[in-house]
Nucleic acid binder design. Structure first.
Lengths: 190, 190
DNA sequence: GTCTATAGTGCGATAGAC
DNA sequence: GTCTATCGCACTATAGAC
């Protein structure tokens, strides 16, 4: 394990998660992570802009899945229907055998506000991308943003449930239930 | 303006905003801000945990207004109706004569991801507080969280509109329209 | 109020792949 | 030889410890 071995980025990501779990985010330096896979601090920062980013790299694929979900919706679908389609597209990113990894990762994030900030920023970026895609399909503002943000809300709630202790349903199944819940809530409002 | 003059916190906040507008957030050091009001860097960090926090201090009052709004809702109100009441409570925090200040502040935040992160974290905290208040009134999960997050969404969209160039309506008026839009969107979904 | 560890950046040197 | 990942060093600013 050292210089020139392939997969430096992936090794750094795995080592970072392990160390963040073991001793906590703040007690882990970038140099610690790099050293644990035979690299230097300087190389760590070549791959990741900062210590937090190492936990979030790879989410570009999630954006792609959202946009594929948008494209899969019928042309005459309402913004909310398009969002549901986008949402179900994301479920592919979280197969059941990734649940345990997601749980570990989320435990670390939940314990550190600095990591929560970054997660919220990523989610906001995804929602903004989704809103843009809705506008391209002709949705006006503020409907596009409202629908996209509602999608982010549903995703967040469903994801939280998906990684809850003892949960066995798939993310897609949970998402469908949460969407139903959200709609029934709105229609019952005075 | 110097040592021992009262209102150190407020002077630091005003100076920080000015400098962030002038030269940008990253080009402004904590020492710059402190020096510009006759204090030292050390004093800056006594008042604010970090460079970002200086733009967000004072939002505890916003939380209070949200909770007052919750309390003002009739006991048999649906979660969503309680959220609307909470939302309108926040409008008091943003009278029309604060609009220009909010615009300046938001311009800075929008230009710097590090500041957006902090803003998102504050908003998430507020939504979590609101969800907790809804649970205390008997709302079950996930309805409480869905309603609270929807409130945050409406607030964000309405606030963005309120500070838009040329906008003259009050925040409360805009919020009411955005809520209507959100509800009509959900009821029209297939 | 001082002192220090760490984050993060810029730039030039080097080691290995080809 | 070229190309590029990695390293070493110097540096500033943040933030916390004493």
């Amino acid at each position: 394990m050292g210089r020139w071995e392939p997969g430096a980025r992936e090794r750094l990501q795995a080592a970072a998660l392990d160390l963040y779990v073991e001793r906590g985010f703040e007690q882990t330096t970038a140099a610690d992570i790099a050293a644990s896979v035979g690299l230097t601090e300087r190389t760590f920062f070549r791959y990741f802009a900062d210590k937090r980013e190492v936990l979030f790299h790879g989410q570009e694929r999630l954006t792609e899945l959202v946009l594929e979900g948008v494209a899969a919706a019928p042309a005459d679908a309402t913004p909310l229907a398009v969002v549901v389609s986008a949402l179900l597209g994301t479920a592919e990113f979280f197969p059941d055998d990734r649940r345990e990894h997601s749980r570990r990762r989320q435990t670390v994030i939940s314990a550190h506000p600095a990591l929560q900030e970054r997660e919220l920023l990523k989610m906001a970026g995804l929602a903004a991308t989704l809103a843009g895609a809705l506008r391209e399909r002709g949705a006006p503002e503020p409907a596009a943003t409202l629908a996209a943000q509602s999608g982010a809300t549903v995703f967040g709630v469903a994801f939280g449930q998906w990684i809850a202790e003892g949960e066995t349903r798939s993310l897609a199944d949970i998402q469908r239930e949460v969407v139903t819940e959200l709609l029934s809530m709105s229609s019952g409002a005075r």
